[in-house]
Amino acid sequence: MATSPKSLDPRTLAKLSGLRLRARRIVEGYVAGLHRSPRHGFSIEFAEHREYAPGDDLRYLDWKVFGRTDKFYLKRFEDETNLVCHIVFDASESMGFRGPQAAISKVEYAACLAASLAWLVLKQQDAVGLVTYDQQFRDELPPSNRATHLHQVIDVLERCQPHSPTATGPILKQLAQRLQRRSVVILISDLLSDTTQLLAGLRALHGRRHDIGVLQIMDPAELSFPFDRPTRFRGLEQLADVVADPRRLRAAYLAELEHHLASVRRACRECEIDYCLIPTDEPLDRALTSFLSRRMARASERSRPSNS
């Protein structure tokens, strides 16, 4: 992967005011780093093969099938031109956390990511919708592929004020019931909620055959627990305070975190969910690239068994 331009470092982005400006910078940076069309990142789910006909785009020719059968087949994708992407955005209090070494909070980082994704989707002429939530749905923007929709997405994201506890699992379950049409669901959250309910929610979405992506945004401090002196940890989302010597608790804390992350990763793997853990000190274009590359790679994996 190409080195990220310094302008996409969260510390640099933090100096930019306005989510639009930040998102634009990210998308431009992302596009500049690609060698392939950004459309591929959000290509829809593989549906079937059909025989080649003159005039067809050779990019969709399945060369492996040709190698085995000496026949030209094109890969066809479902809903090729009517992709709907729902960005599910966690706006709970825990997302407002910003660690001592972090340049921006999780919610700011997540908003940048969400805006960038929306931008990319809209650039593909696809529809993007936005749902923000904490314990309940807060703002909902129905999917749209109009260019002006991006302004609404950004406005909603900028209005987000994280102050309430989260209930990601139940929210995902409700969302699964609401979304009648198969779509791409991108969950942007720190996933700091009840793990069992969270996994249940993800499975519910998966059960509806949505293409799910999970971007878990974590502060570096949450991943490393770098405190040394006795500290009062004031619990967000109405959790109790803890006074502790972090040095003595670090190992146990990291073990608990790892257990949680492992559970999430395992559930995502089982549900074929694209999962990406993104610390907020990671350059945003890299995070975006990493996520989208993983999606593309998985999409190719999904197409491979059907060819065989």
């Binding site: 209090e93 825990s94 997302m95 407002g96 956390f97 001592p100 999780k106 720190d190 700091l192 974590m218 502060d219 949450e222 405190f227 002196r229 006795p230 500290t231 009062r232 940890f233 004031r234 619990g235 967000l236 989302e237 959790l239 109790a240 803890v242 006074v243 502790a244 003595r248 608790l249 146990a252 804390y253 073990a255 608990e256 975190l257 949680h260």
Partner: peptide, 23 residues
């Protein structure tokens, strides 16, 4: 030291609480 003035708002409290609970 228990009344230390060093305070941190902490999001990943569920892991910390679990760790404290066990330790």
């Amino acid at each position: 030291s228990r009344r230390t003035r060093h305070e941190v708002s902490w999001a990943a409290m569920q892991f910390l609480l679990a760790a404290v609970d066990k330790q």
